[in-house]
């Protein structure tokens, strides 16, 4: 049988979509997100975060924004809603201050006295922040990352979370 020159049986439907597509990378979720959060932190980032005390008791807003930018730079793959809620670390300003926090939402650095509760769910990281093994503690909505001075990260869902 001769091959038909014009095929009428099958039809290839080509549709061209004109809708704009924004490609900003795949959102990390579940284990992929956990894997990302466990990655060793860069020395520059650890250094920047451990110098919160150096700013004194009252912190300049532009400096806070610089810190927030360095956090965003460290976690470039994360979506804004996946960023940490805040950062807690031991305060070396001396008594009566015990810990200080960097609140990502309110964009402020605040120092807290012993017994004064921490806002935005950061209280659960307080005891860990006081531990000498960790430089600072990153608090996420469903996890805590304890970062050592070497940049190594210990990850936990924490005692305050449902395991």
């Amino acid at each position: 049988m001769r091959r038909p020159i014009i095929t009428t049986g099958s039809k290839t439907d080509v549709r061209l979509s004109t809708e704009p597509v924004t490609r900003t990378g795949v959102e990390l979720t579940g284990l992929a997100l956990e894997k990302r959060l466990k990655v060793k932190r860069s020395a520059a980032y650890v250094e920047a975060m451990t110098k919160l005390d150096a700013m004194g008791a009252v912190c300049d807003h532009t400096k806070v924004q610089e810190l927030i930018r360095s956090i965003q730079g460290e976690f470039a793959e994360l979506k804004p809603h996946q960023f940490l809620i805040g950062l807690v670390s031991k305060c070396y300003l001396g008594a009566p201050y015990e810990v200080h926090t960097l609140d990502m939402r309110q964009e402020i650095v605040e120092h807290y006295k012993a017994g004064q509760p921490l806002p935005s769910g950061m209280e659960k990281a307080r005891a860990l922040a006081m531990h000498p093994s960790y430089a600072f503690i990153e608090v996420y909505s469903d996890a805590i990352c304890a970062v050592a001075a070497t940049g190594y990260v210990a990850f936990t869902r924490g005692a305050g979370y449902v395991q």
Binding site: L128, Y134, A146, A154, F155, T156, A159
Partner: peptide
Amino acid sequence: IRQAHDDMTVDNRAKVPQ
């Protein structure tokens, strides 16, 4: 092993009753 140990340690530290 180090990561597993670190995670286990931080979990244990977070659960110490104050």
